[in-house]
Design a binder for these strands. Sequence first.
DNA 1: TTGAAAGCGATACCAC
DNA 2: GTGGTATCGCTTTCAA
Lengths: 303, 303
Amino acid sequence: MADETRARIKRIAAEIGFRPNALARGLLSNRSFTIGLLTNDTYGRFTLPVMAGISEALVDHGVSVFLCAIEDDPALGKIHVDAMLDKQVDGIIATGKRIDGSLPVDLSGLPVPVVYAFTTGAPDSVTFTADDGHGATLAATRLKEIGRKRLAHVTGPDDFAAVHARAAAFRDVAGRDAPVLYGTWSEKWGHEAVDRLWRLGKERPDGIFCGNDQIARGVIDALRERGVCVPEDVSVIGFDNWEIVAAQSRPPLTTIDMNLKELGRQAGLTVLALGEGRPVEAGLRKLPCRLVVRQSCSATLQS
Amino acid sequence: MADETRARIKRIAAEIGFRPNALARGLLSNRSFTIGLLTNDTYGRFTLPVMAGISEALVDHGVSVFLCAIEDDPALGKIHVDAMLDKQVDGIIATGKRIDGSLPVDLSGLPVPVVYAFTTGAPDSVTFTADDGHGATLAATRLKEIGRKRLAHVTGPDDFAAVHARAAAFRDVAGRDAPVLYGTWSEKWGHEAVDRLWRLGKERPDGIFCGNDQIARGVIDALRERGVCVPEDVSVIGFDNWEIVAAQSRPPLTTIDMNLKELGRQAGLTVLALGEGRPVEAGLRKLPCRLVVRQSCSATLQS
DNA sequence: TTGAAAGCGATACCAC
DNA sequence: GTGGTATCGCTTTCAA
């Protein structure tokens, strides 16, 4: 084609605002440049950052994302999955609230690639999750580094895999018999846990690592009510870096960030690669966490 | 067609799991059964409930939703809008964080219908929002009903339209010179506001209506620190019904719910109607709010 | 009542 | 280089 012609066509195309019809194009190429994000996380606590990462990574590739919140309803799940398949999504990313739970839909044997994030996937699938052990090590190590001697861990229900991974990593750093208190993921439990720790009397902890930011917030509040200063007397570290909780607590919370956005990014790129037939190694991938320093854990390192 | 044939076909279709290709179908019908949700609300505070409502209303119609978070980036906004148009969405719902702000993209003159929710739309468009005045009336009235005499309103920045609407409605119930304190949408400000109210000395309020749940939480915490009991001495009502804040405060917060899910439902059905050419009256629609009773506002009505 | 053909919008590939 | 044609999967229309 003559360069001149090419230029002219392009100009006219731009002039009349020509935009190719992605449906027609998809019909032929068998690619819709569309993927689906399936989630049972109502509050979006985990889903939103993951979604942001996916979208950010894929928008450059012209891919759009269907968001399907299915609660824990298998029927609704099936409806959404069918709708997505009808619309010829290039892949599906399944995400949930915990790595040891799965969505109420069977995603095996679908005609499109599936990647799991923060939820249990079919064997032989690609699954992304945060490295809980790493996060806990980060927290406990920091507490040690600033000179805390007696560490305690206040965390969630002991039937969460993440809770075990964190507790184990915590004890590796804090010592075999450092106290680990299991409860619920709530502020209320953070309060109660402090009551217990202080009632026990003997060696009260000077560093508390919490299983999530809400627990940490409860712990901080309870300590303040007892006249214990954070971070002067006791250092507190949370988990999740849920801004709305972590940044608004008094003092603002030092916490562990699971890098969910990066997790989303990788999941997005992976499902895309799978869709294009590029080889991807199956298995569970644990992404490193990150310590976010605010004021609940003395800022001055003991050097 | 013979009934027998019809049945046989249906059976076989089900057997081999036949699913019509929505792309091909859309190519012909000019309907993709897909809509786009555009938002600049990063945390999903408002977007998620709206999204849930949209999805719930439209899933029955076979419609899927593209979620596009564009922050406040006009370039990103344009990319997402173009991508959606290429994919032949049947309509777009624009949503934001406040009714008196608009998305950084021009959505006028698009070839598909646009409905606005919680964000300023083009003139002549359909816009949904919560009735802030109604919510404030609900709160102030309740405080009066339980016998509170001296009401105060602690709210957000005075450059929010919602703040004005609420303050005006509040004063209609509480009295012309009931104190209204403007600040930020944070817990910190709730604390400060109590300091101010209590320092003023004279007639301390016995009922405080807050502009959002975070402020309310700050107010409650500050009151407790001063030895003031909630709800015995002072009743507190929040705004938003953000579960994570409202349900975890001590005591749990009575608050105003903006019915965002219902708002999403209506926006979804409206954009669908528009797309089908059904007539829809343009203009701003204010949806009523709802009082959610928890424990921060004495439960016993004075009858 | 049923089967065949045209066409939706884009692309790949073929002769010219 | 270029124009024409078949094709993707489905719906609609028209003829048999």
